[in-house]
Design a protein around this nucleic acid. Structure first.
Length: 196
DNA sequence: GTAGTGATTTTCT
DNA sequence: GAAAATCACTACA
């Protein structure tokens, strides 16, 4: 069996957040859920970087919610938003610096039956994971998956050594401050990228 | 096909 | 008490 996939090490996350966000595109997220193995190819992310970024949850210092962002790199940060949805982030940069990459969209790869079960109203593959709230719902992720070690065996990212995607960038979505920053990155050839 | 709006609760001020 | 890193439904073209 040739080398087909490698789990990304902690050093991948221990870099400037903008670089991590760009390099994450085209990688695969693997989650061994209680229901079974779920895999998606990452096609859209956003960077939230430290105290100088007004849109970042870490902008106003450490709180109970965002404590994981200030911890060491390579951990999951999941928060609850709009009374109904969860969003998954990957913590970046060294301990004490509050930054993370928000996962916005993926193309489903494995475990489609479980995703459809978690999102009963979705009718096509591409719509299962095209949005941060939809991704967490289809993957069955909640607060319980917060602060998981991404170098462990439950949740991690995988490099399958595919050709790097064409990368586009734009302002971030859904925020009211910090829209001047072009910190949203996406695969320009993917149909699963969110609109607008 | 697009545009407008309600749902629902945690979190911090 | 207000806002929030969203989504899906409804109305209309």
């Amino acid at each position: 069996m040739p080398r087909r996939a490698k789990k990304l090490p902690r050093s991948f996350y221990d870099r400037p957040t903008g670089e991590v966000a760009r390099d994450i595109l085209g990688k695969y997220i693997v989650y061994k859920s209680p229901e079974g193995r779920l895999v998606g190819r990452i096609v859209e992310v956003e960077a939230y970087i430290g105290q100088d970024d007004p849109a970042c949850h870490a902008a106003r210092g450490e709180t109970g919610r965002n404590a994981v962002m200030f911890g060491p790199p390579g951990f999951s940060y999941i928060y609850f938003i709009y009374g109904m949805y969860f969003c998954l982030n990957f913590v970046t940069e060294k301990k004490g610096f509050g930054a993370a990459v928000l996962l916005r969209a993926c193309e489903p790869s494995e475990g489609l039956d479980i995703m459809y079960k978690n999102s009963p109203r979705i009718k096509s593959d591409v719509k299962l994971l095209n949005g941060p709230g939809k991704f967490c719902r289809s993957f069955g992720m909640t607060r319980d998956q917060n602060a998981l070690d991404l170098t462990g065996s439950v949740l991690y990212l995988e490099d399958r050594f595919e050709k790097a995607p064409r990368i586009g960038r734009s302002h971030r979505i859904g925020i009211r401050v910090g829209r001047d920053k072009l910190w949203r990155f996406f695969d320009t050839d993917s149909k699963a990228v969110t609109k607008s």
